[in-house]
Nucleic acid binder design. Structure first.
Length: 505
RNA sequence: GGCCCGCUAGCUCAAUUGGCAGAGCAACUGACUCUUAAUCAGUAGGUUCAAGGUUCGAUUCCUUGGCGGGUCACCA
């Protein structure tokens, strides 16, 4: 058992005294009649009536502040719906009951209090307490215990700000930082809005395996695990793509999934080892149609979540009330670097041309990879307003169809916003022989690297041989979208329990 | 993985050139019958991330390690 701090020992002493008195500090049952917000709302309604009647309520919540003034006590309690002031006065409840509160209750404890709702002389809606009882004794003090409500906004005067403690003890962070709770409400709303949009367009939400015998659909290192009974190695999925497209073969024309992907790679402000992705696949559509749907979807989601079609991210206004910028990748690179990738058909030539640029790159990289590097370095950070970059190198897009007039460019686009890649989509390959060829090419290029081999998904090819409708596919990082909407600088602020290295305490 | 920065009381932070480790809030004792960062008086609270080194003396300087943050690299 871990050592208790002095502050905790004091509270354990209070807990022990409660037990000596035969008082249950963690009772099973609560007699609450109103959520705090409901009680407040009811009082406001009643106040405006001709013949107001007294509102009696039993409220429950966590004690967030207490002002002990001898014969009178003010305290604020908070539940999931809001905050209200409790008012205790010796005249009503007696000295003994006043002392009992002062001796046994601390900030952070959960309390039940019954009484009538009224306004104090300063106008604050409060509960005039007649009886009260302990609901749960807190042993450890909450880290930030001082805040104030000014014009309905909570102003913290002492706050939990150390990021490590905030992420490791998210419960404490959430308990004391209401704006953090707000981020996760916004996150839930965002996901609901995406579902509402896709549902309204006739998409079916499905669930596909997270434990997969073969991983695929993206370029990433997987996490591996093992099924003991079956003596089988398994991978945590790195994308949903190949399973969702199997469903198109099965006759579902429009499917989507929102769920967790796992990538065994570096961690950064925009990368967490597990992250939430949304992918949809749309039969009889191509990447142009997907682009249009993307515009419509994001405008809808932003409006649903924020109530308007513009928002501010890192101090810049981002507008979803107009069509996205559309830039062909080749043109974009030409404009920003002066290099026309069309003029450099091999990796060596392109690398040569890139020597003059102020940028580090691996001269051994493939042509596609170099083009992607140029995009990431010179274009991506500048796309604050919603922008589609389209027509990508074939060799970094093994699941996308080529454009009609080219053998090395594919019908693919990525969407950018706030200087970040947000989504990725293409006209999907549905020719099984083309797909097999692409897999084999990827296999070769991986084999030339050393540690990585990309397994060939034979079952996926078998599915495609049964006939797959032409389709457009789409993937979007939900965490990044939430970062944008909640104006948060790192992915850790939008994931409840972000990954941290073990230990540290 | 490289580089830079940080780690001091429960929380937020100080500490001069290397010279007795401090403040506000929280806690404890007391006063106070409409306060709201309540106020007032008093008390207590520390393995300064860890280990080692230099020194008469280390929160401070050096080495190694841990964790976090930033950044670069990696991430078709």
């Amino acid at each position: 058992m871990e050592d208790y701090t002095n502050l905790e020992k004091v509270r354990l002493g209070k807990l022990a005294r409660l037990r000596e008195l035969g008082i249950e500090a963690y009772p099973r049952r609560v007699e609450r009649t109103h959520a705090i917000a409901d009680a407040t709302e009811g009082f406001l309604k009643m106040e405006n009536e001709e013949a107001p009647e007294e509102i009696t309520a039993v409220l429950a919540g966590r004690i967030r502040s207490a002002r002990l003034m001898g014969k009178v006590i003010f305290a604020h309690i908070e539940d999931g719906t809001g905050r209200i002031q409790l008012f205790f006065r010796a005249n009503e409840i007696g000295d003994e009951s006043m002392d009992f509160f002062q001796e046994h209750f601390d900030l952070g404890d959960f309390i039940q209090a019954s009484g009538t709702i009224f306004r104090t002389r300063t106008g604050e809606i409060s509960l005039w307490v007649k009886t009260y009882k302990m609901l749960a004794k807190a042993i450890t003090p909450l880290p930030a215990a001082k805040d104030q409500i000014v014009n309905g906004e909570v102003v913290s005067h002492a706050t939990l700000s150390d990021p490590e403690t905030r992420y490791r003890q998210r419960y404490a962070d959430l308990a004391v930082n209401p704006e953090v709770r707000q981020v996760f409400r916004l996150r839930a709303k965002t996901i609901r809005a995406i579902q509402a949009f896709l549902d309204s367009k006739g998409f079916l939400e499905v669930e596909t395996p997270i434990l997969q015998p073969i991983y695929g659909g993206a370029a990433a290192q997987p996490f591996t695990t093992h099924h003991n009974q079956l003596k089988q190695d398994l991978y945590l999925r790195i994308s949903f793509e190949l399973y969702l497209k199997r469903l198109l073969v099965g006759g579902f024309d429009k499917v989507y999934e929102i769920g967790r992907d796992f990538r065994n790679e570096g961690v950064s402000f925009k990368h967490n080892p597990e992250f939430t992705q949304m992918e949809f696949y749309w039969a009889y559509a191509d990447y142009q149609k997907v682009m249009e749907l993307t515009e419509e979807m994001l405008a809808f989601v932003v409006e649903q979540v924020l109530g308007r079609k513009t928002f501010t991210y890192k101090g810049q206004e981002i507008r979803l009330d107009q069509p996205w910028e559309r830039v062909e990748l080749r043109q974009g690179i030409l404009e920003k670097t002066g290099i026309d990738i069309q003029d450099h058909s091999t990796a060596a030539e392109l690398a040569e041309a890139m020597q003059s640029l102020e940028m580090d790159f691996n001269p051994q990289a493939s042509r596609g990879k170099l083009i992607d590097d140029l995009l990431g370095h010179f274009l991506e950070p500048g796309y604050i307003q919603p922008t589609f970059i389209y027509n990508y190198p074939r060799e970094i897009s093994p699941l996308a169809k080529t454009t009609p007039d080219s053998t090395d460019t594919v019908e693919r686009f990525e969407g950018f916003m706030g200087g970040m890649e947000l989504c990725n989509a293409f006209t999907e390959i549905n020719d099984p022989q083309d797909q097999e060829q692409r897999f084999l090419e990827m296999g070769r290029s991986y084999a030339s690297g050393e540690d990585e081999h990309h397994p060939l998904d034979e079952d996926y090819l078998r599915a495609m041989r049964y006939g797959m409708p032409p389709n457009g596919g789409f993937g979007m990082g939900i965490d990044r979208l939430v970062m944008l909407l909640a104006d948060q600088p790192t992915i850790r602020e939008v994931i409840l329990f972000p990954h941290l290295r073990e230990g540290g305490e």
